[in-house]
């Protein structure tokens, strides 16, 4: 009897907030927007497709937050990576363009990581600075012009294509979530990321190379932001400096609501996936409800605030 009580108390509510929230929002839109096309297969698929880049970025952010750091620069990386890829694809074959986008993402993430791990600058300040820096780079790269992506195989692979009837964006999402979950949950590296974010000194004295972990998580986050950039460029068949610009809040909210701790030591990739889908569904539903853009922003902000408050509630207790 007492042990049941104890178990109940130890049961961490924040882990389930995202699933309950997801269901509630889904039911709400299903009832109120059932006749406005919310429940059509086409609309539901659309939500998943639009959420793909968010999910990919969220996976990277789980690694960073779990390690006790933060990345604010991934939105800017998305734009720089997408533009790099689009520009290179204008003259070179597919794989060079892909490498350009991913390489730029990895390189910027690595740069963040070196500054954080070896100069011991706070990641909040480092990535705040690189966020601004690379937003500027993205603007000046093409003088604010958008660059069309005409390479068909690229568009198939990262945008409108499909394999065995499954849209490529869904495949990227599944692949990244599966790999991310495996690395995070099942490998030594994942355990060391959590230990570093939980108690860096304890991790250090047990022989974990804490600086390496910090470089790795920020590099992973940069690389995944690069991939998100490719997915945007593929779906829109163009790259533009505005890509990823407004994703910062959405991704952070998705990850926190998903059950990852802002202070490190705790994280879940599956939670981040459901959190991302929840944010995508919210966007979609609010548009279908006919809210103006400014009203959408307000409602979304309020809902994020409530969800984050519930998620963080038992951390404070």
């Amino acid at each position: 009897m007492q042990s049941t009580m104890q178990k109940l108390r130890q049961l961490n509510l924040s882990q389930y907030v995202v699933y309950i929230g997801f269901l509630l929002i889904f039911l709400f839109f299903a009832v109120t927007l059932g006749n406005d096309g919310f429940l059509t297969q086409r609309n539901l698929t659309n939500i998943i497709l639009q959420t793909a880049p968010i999910t990919i970025m969220a996976i990277g952010l789980v690694f960073v937050l779990a390690a006790g750091e933060i990345d604010l620069s991934f939105g800017s990386i998305v734009a720089v990576a997408a533009l790099s890829s689009a520009v290179v694809l204008g003259e070179y074959p597919l794989f060079v363009g892909v490498l350009a986008g991913l390489g730029v993402g990895l390189a910027i993430g690595f740069f963040n990581g070196i500054l954080v791990a070896y100069l011991r600058l706070p990641s909040f300040l480092v990535t705040l600075a690189t966020m601004g820096l690379f937003a500027g780079v993205a603007r000046s790269m093409t003088n604010l012009r958008s660059v069309p992506v005409l390479n068909e195989s690229f568009v198939n692979m990262f945008g409108s294509g499909a394999l065995f009837g499954v849209p490529s964006l869904v495949l990227w999402t599944i692949g990244a979530v599966a790999l991310g979950h495996f690395v995070f949950r099942e490998t030594k590296f994942g355990a060391h990321v959590l230990a570093t974010g939980d108690n860096a000194r304890a991790a250090q004295v047990t022989g974990i190379k804490v600086p390496h972990i910090r470089v790795w998580v920020l590099t992973i986050c940069g690389g995944l932001a690069g991939l998100a950039g490719l997915l945007y460029a593929g779906r829109l068949q163009a790259a533009r400096y505005t890509l990823g610009e407004s994703d910062l809040m959405t991704v952070i909210a998705a990850v926190i609501i998903g059950g990852t701790a802002l202070k490190g030591g705790k994280g879940t990739i599956i939670g981040a996936l459901v959190g991302s889908l929840m944010m995508g569904m919210l966007n979609n539903g609010l548009i279908l409800m006919g809210l103006s853009v400014s009203d959408q922003m307000i409602v979304r902000g309020v809902i994020i605030l409530i969800a984050v408050a519930i998620s963080l509630r038992d951390v404070n207790n």
Binding site: L194, A195, D198, A202, A203, I208, K266
Partner: peptide, 18 residues
């Protein structure tokens, strides 16, 4: 203590030597 608070006892036991 050099323990990681949010991790399980067994993970702490094998910290860095999983």
């Amino acid at each position: 203590l050099a323990l990681a608070d949010e991790q399980a006892v067994y993970m702490n036991m094998f910290l860095g030597r999983e």
